[in-house]
Structures are given as structure tokens and as C-alpha cells.
Amino acid sequence: MRAIGAIFRRELTGYFVTPVAYVFLVIFLALMGALTFYFGGFYERGQADLGPFFGLHPWLYAFLVPALAMRLWAEERDTGTIELLLTLPVTTAQAVIGKFLAAWVFVLFALVLTAPMWWTVNYLGEPDNGVILAAYIGSAFMAGGFLAIGSFVSALTRSQVVAFVIGFVLCFLFLMAGYPLVLDAFRGWAPQGVVDAISALSFQAHFESIRRGVLELRDLIYFFGLIVFFLFANVTVIEMKKGE
């Protein structure tokens, strides 16, 4: 616990001593705002809700979260600090969790900074705040899912650019798993069960119901399971690649 805490604090502070945090926050908030108003038809819909705003989250996460996650392990391997870190009294799993939690809390911080959107709809009308809260919780879990994928990919390479590109593609595939883009690649030859299973992996499908205010346990379990799976894979990859 102590080691996780120390790594968590170091990582989180690390975001703010480099430009990473500020660049990420500014781009995240600017894109959220701009896209919600211009593409989401925020005013034109004439509804006081945050539907268009949350609809953007999966797409923004798909490329911003890999950008945040790319350095998590690739940088440690590139600079050799991984050897320092993993010879301290800490297990690889603790290190993975500490880093993941710091990045997650950072994304949650960015999410909290979108609160003006919520104030705005409350000022303009009477939205269902329960739905908004559910969507925020769902969004937080989805961000964790993307982040776990990004962290895993970052451990595969010592190049941050490679980690970003692969991370982005993988996140995008998970996002699109319910769409023909991905499903058509399997429909021709794979049994229907497999196609359904892939479709069930879609971030979009699980987030969509949450976004509408249906905060079902199975959707949260899906994201939680995904996080656990990829962090486990993350630990395995680090152990395997240490000797290289």
C-alpha cells in the first residue's frame, strides 16, 4: 500500500511539473466544449441535457487517453528507470496499479473541470441530474478502460510514439467493436457466437446505456473487468520483457 501510494504521488506530481498536464487539460476541455456546441447541436436541440456532451467522450478518450498513457512504461524502459523502480521494495503489480491510478485520477480531474457544462444546463433548464451523474460515473469507468489499454500497450515498447499509435488503434477497435467496421471482418468466417462476443466488447454499447441514465451493474462490471484484465496483461508483459 505504501509503495502504491508513493508511486501514485510521484506520478501525479510528475504530470504537473512537465507540460503534459496543462497541454492535456487545455486540449481536452477545449475540444469538449467546442465539439459539444458545434457538432453536438447543444443549443439547437432545445433540451437541457448533456447527451451530446457525453456522446463525444468515447471519441475524445480514444485518442487523448493513449496520449496520456503512452509514457507510463515506455519512458521507464527507454530511460532505464524501470530497473531502479522494480528493484525497490515493490512488486510489479503494485507499480502498475500505482501508475494506473495516478493517470486515472488525472483524467478524473480533467472530467471534473468540465463541470461548467453541467452548471450551464442547470442554468438553462431543469435537466435530470441523476442521468448526468450516472453518465459521469460511466464516463469515468470508460476512461479507466481506455487507460488500462494504453498502459498495457505502453509496456510493449520503449518508443512512446509506437505506444501512442498502437494504443490509439486498439482503443479505436474497442470503441468500434459493435459497428460493421469491426464486425464485418469477422462475419464471413467466424461463428455467430464469436461475432456476438466481439460486439459485446464494444465500449460504445456499454457506455450508451449509461449515458441514457441506465447505470447498470453489468456495464460497470464490464469496464472494471476490462481494467483488471489489461492491468494483469500489463504486469505480465513487464515481467516478460525485463530481460530485453
Partner: peptide, 25 residues
Amino acid sequence: YLPEGAPAYAEMVPHAFLRFIADMR
């Protein structure tokens, strides 16, 4: 342990770095 090449977190200042190591230990 001093690993080969004396790796350390480049963005940190030595004081913060040593405090991190102290926390870890």
C-alpha cells in the same frame, strides 16, 4: 542498488527524487 547508467527520473529535482525513494523504502 545503483543500476547501470545511474537512471533517475529526469523531470524531478534531486530532493523530490530522494524523498520518493525514501517513501518507497
